[in-house]
């Protein structure tokens, strides 16, 4: 039986962590790890794991006789925007872990089923992957006029790309809270905390809900969603029961639910506190796995 094949472009921390996850997958066969720097540690690690690795970039990848079915892009938004049309022309479906947002936003437990045929899928942001499932869990019970998320991550898990363009995180996540999470209006906040030992990723989701909302139904929906996310991110847990506060005039007479989450990484390549990076690679791997059977059926 031939499995779906997938290349990883970008042999950095994210690409390497993703590689470890994909090597465990029954549905996906790793095609190759692709970079641009012959001296890259990530390419050397891939070779050590028995994976074909090249510093020849996307030129090398697209020159292969056996093209992969999928490519995971873990480079930069700029690189992905340049590469995306080339993957599309070659008929390779792209799962984009950069902020490029060349394709629609995907959050596996929320909207993957409707996007399986999209040539390019964007993984939003780490904070988006951690919180949008919860916004959706609430908005599937009651209308959510406004949702706000606060993502706290360890300073050491925020790379130079994130730091140089932090507005990209807040704006992209806010848009996805609306489009994918189902809130009328979204807001995202990211905090970098340098405490040592590093803090495990924490996320808080606040949703404005109707004054007479069925709080039991919302809480049940949140619990069910946490279980679904935990199937691909085992360290995704509620810190406490969802907290409900009654309506206030400053909240336009709406009530509020607050959900407190911890995202502990699997420790595959990145340390467990880097839950923000783990949830990206785990969600991307989950997208790849769920696309895989579909591809075989239509092949």
């Amino acid at each position: 039986m031939s499995r779906t094949t997938a290349a990883i472009v970008g042999p950095g921390n994210i690409g390497t962590d993703l590689l470890v996850k994909l090597l465990r997958s029954d549905a996906i066969e790793v095609h190759s790890m692709v970079g641009v720097d012959p001296a890259s540690d990530g390419l050397a690690r891939a070779r050590e794991l028995g994976v074909r690795a090249s510093a020849g970039g996307v030129d090398w990848l697209l020159a292969q006789d056996d093209l992969p079915d999928l490519v995971f892009e873990a480079t930069s938004a700029k690189a992905h925007l340049a590469n995306a049309p080339r993957y599309a022309a070659a008929g390779i479906q792209a799962i984009d872990l950069t902020p490029a947002a060349a394709g629609p936003f995907v959050c596996p437990p929320v909207n993957l089923d409707t996007l399986a045929d999209a040539p390019n899928l964007n993984m939003i942001t780490c904070g988006g992957q951690a919180t949008i499932p919860i916004v959706h869990a609430v908005s599937s019970v009651v209308p959510v006029a406004y949702a706000e998320i606060v993502a706290s991550i360890a300073s050491r898990s925020a790379g130079p790309g994130t730091r140089a363009n932090i507005d990209e995180f807040t704006q992209t996540t806010a848009r996805a809270i609306e489009r994918v999470g189902g809130a009328e209006r979204g807001k995202a906040i990211i905090i970098l905390n340098p405490v040592d030992p590093p803090m495990i990723m924490r996320d808080t989701v606040f949703c404005a809900i109707p004054a007479d909302a069925d709080t039991e139904a919302i809480a049940a929906s949140v619990h069910a969603m946490v279980e679904r996310v935990a199937t691909y991110v085992p360290g995704y847990t509620l810190r406490a029961e969802p907290q409900f506060d009654g309506p206030r005039d400053i909240w336009n007479d709406r009530a509020r639910v607050a959900v407190f989450l911890e995202v502990k990484g699997n420790g595959d390549y990145l340390p467990p506190w880097a839950g923000n990076l783990d949830i990206m690679t785990a969600a991307a791997a989950s997208v790849g796995e769920r696309l895989a059977p579909g591809r075989k059926a239509t092949a």
Binding site: S152, I189, I191, P194, V195, M199, R202, A240, Q243, F260
Partner: peptide, 21 residues
């Protein structure tokens, strides 16, 4: 003690919930 920084107001509720528990 937790070393929370400016902006982590949400952690105040989290800490209060822990203390209450």
């Amino acid at each position: 003690e937790a070393g929370y920084v400016g902006g982590q107001e949400d952690m105040i509720i989290d800490v209060a919930l822990q203390l209450a528990a």
